[in-house]
Amino acid sequence: MDKIPMTPSGHKTLSEEYRRRTSEERPKIIADISEARAHGDLSENAEYHAAKEQQSLNEGRIKELEALLALADIIDITKLSGSTIKFGATVKLVDEDTEAEKQYQIVGDAEADLSKGRISISSPIARAMIGKEAGDSVEVAAPGGAKTYEILDVKFV
């Protein structure tokens, strides 16, 4: 399988979630199952079924985190430089229609969070920006129609 590009902070966040799920949530869920089992008839025990479902969801996420962490290719963006947009770049751009300025950091799929201004390298806007420089225009196919942005600044922080 291919490596998954990831920033050091993204790797740290996923590692912390893995630690929390395995050492805190897993034992709590096991205790909840034991307590619910002690209530008797399991066929009509809603607490038991809820705890088992929670266990299934937690174990699924643990497996997902194990795979992500095993395939992580940690890229230290503080060592990156240049004027072209690539993984790790923080890009300031302006919507040519509305004049609204936005700033995004291009990160791996697993750590993307639009509310924090972190977009996935595989997102349409990031793919359109890769290889471009400040001053270039990019057109992005969006659900509401094509959007055009002008790249104002590219930096690696």
Rank of each mutant, 00 (worst) to 15 (best):
A46S: 06
K12D: 14
S81T: 13
A38I: 07
T148F: 05
F156I: 02
I29R: 09
L152A: 06
D136W: 07
D76T: 14
I75L: 07
F156E: 02
E101M: 08
T84L: 02
K155A: 03
A128E: 08
D136R: 04
M129Y: 07
A72C: 13
R19L: 05
H11L: 06
N58A: 08
S137N: 12
D76C: 06
G10T: 04
E35D: 15
T90Q: 14
D113Q: 12
S43G: 06
A72K: 13
Y149N: 01
L114V: 12
L65T: 03
R20A: 00
V157K: 04
V140T: 11
Y18F: 11
S9A: 10
A128H: 05
G10Y: 12
T22E: 00
K12H: 08
F87W: 09
Y104Q: 03
Q54R: 14
Y18V: 05
P27K: 12
D153I: 03
I119N: 01
M1V: 11
Y149P: 02
I119V: 01
I119A: 01
S23M: 11
K86L: 00
M129Q: 03
G82I: 12
L65Y: 00
K155N: 02
G117L: 00
A112F: 14
E111H: 11
T84E: 10
V94S: 11
S115M: 01
N58P: 05
K116P: 01
T84A: 05
V140D: 01
G60H: 02
V107F: 02
G82M: 13
D97A: 12
E150C: 01
H49C: 00
K86I: 02
K12I: 01
T98D: 03
S15E: 09
S15D: 10
D95P: 14
A134T: 04
N45A: 10
D76V: 11
L57N: 13
I30T: 09
E53I: 03
Y18M: 10
G60T: 07
E16K: 14
S15N: 03
T148Q: 05
N58M: 09
K3V: 02
D76N: 15
L80Y: 00
K155C: 03
P8F: 11
L68H: 00
A142N: 11
I125P: 09
P8T: 05
E17I: 01
A142Y: 08
R127D: 00
I29A: 14
K92G: 08
M6N: 10
E150T: 15
L71N: 15
A100H: 04
I151C: 07
K52H: 01
A46N: 09
I29L: 14
S23V: 03
I121W: 00
A141M: 12
S56A: 13
E16L: 13
E101F: 08
G145M: 09
